[in-house]
Design a protein around this nucleic acid. Structure first.
Lengths: 142, 142
DNA sequence: GCTCTCATGAGATTGGGTCTCAACCTAGGG
DNA sequence: CCCTAGGTTGAGACCCAATCTCATGAGAGC
């Protein structure tokens, strides 16, 4: 997501546009990898020392609800967040370098329909996250 | 996994066969659904009050390492465990009645390999959750 | 400006999970 | 059958991510 569209996206749902929420959104949008709430908190705190931890959690939750970010698990017990655009809601997460790749959505559509058919379940949306090693880390392999 | 094969599986890797580990393995094997460590602890504790919490975590970790159980995330923050032969790693969540159905795992394997191939990504595990309407709710009303 | 709310910050609290360590018990050798 | 070595246990302290509380602060419409 481009930094310039953050304000409009944020206020489009009747949410108030606060300095803190913009900061969180910008920090996430400019991140090269998935970040935990704690990491975001610490990053922003260096330039805005009064920021509260709970505010970061609330801002992230709002972004997830509004489709500006998505959450998944890292290391089995920490939530990590990444900014997302409308097209890519599923991810390949490298468990070594933490890099997040977007899953080619054309793979997903047939899956949704086949799952729906087999289980007589009308799938509205899905959360698909794949964990493993990216190409780069696979080569280094210890 | 059948209860009778638990002891041999457990001692096959040089692990000691203790009463507590057998209890955890049996409780997990007889469970109809995925259970958290806490839930297992409470279940076993009713009949064996001296059982320690840490022991349950250690036993589950050992089972995961030995391929007798697998772990995945539930509700975003809680680890849940299931005996390995059972195939309930992914879910269909009904957004109306909140019922959770288990996804037929045979759908998943081909997906993992196709995703891996397309993105040159070595998939270790995945978190797949599908949201929509279950058969029952679908019949009632749109 | 005014005011109505929603949002924030600081710290307390919750709760899953891990660590510590003395006591205990399994497995294997004699 | 006994003995020993070393893995295992139980209890509680501890860790830390995440949530809750509530007085204070600040968007946004009027």
């Amino acid at each position: 997501m481009k930094a310039t569209e953050i304000p409009e996206r944020m206020s489009s749902r009747g949410r108030r546009l606060t300095r803190q929420r913009v900061l969180v959104a910008e920090a996430l949008a400019s991140a090269k990898r998935a970040l935990s709430a704690q990491e975001l908190y610490e990053r922003i705190k260096t330039s805005h020392p009064t920021l509260g931890r709970a505010t970061v959690y609330r801002a992230l939750e709002a972004q997830v609800q509004d489709g500006m970010a998505s959450r998944f698990e890292r290391d089995g017990h920490v939530s990590a967040y990444i900014a997302c655009d409308a097209e890519h809601h599923h991810h390949l997460v490298c468990t070594r370098c933490q890099r997040v790749l977007d899953l080619d959505e054309t793979v997903v559509a047939p899956l949704l329909s086949s799952v729906g058919r087999r289980h007589e379940f009308q799938v509205d949306h899905a959360a698909l996250d794949f964990y493993g090693l990216c190409r780069r880390c696979r080569r280094k392999r210890p």
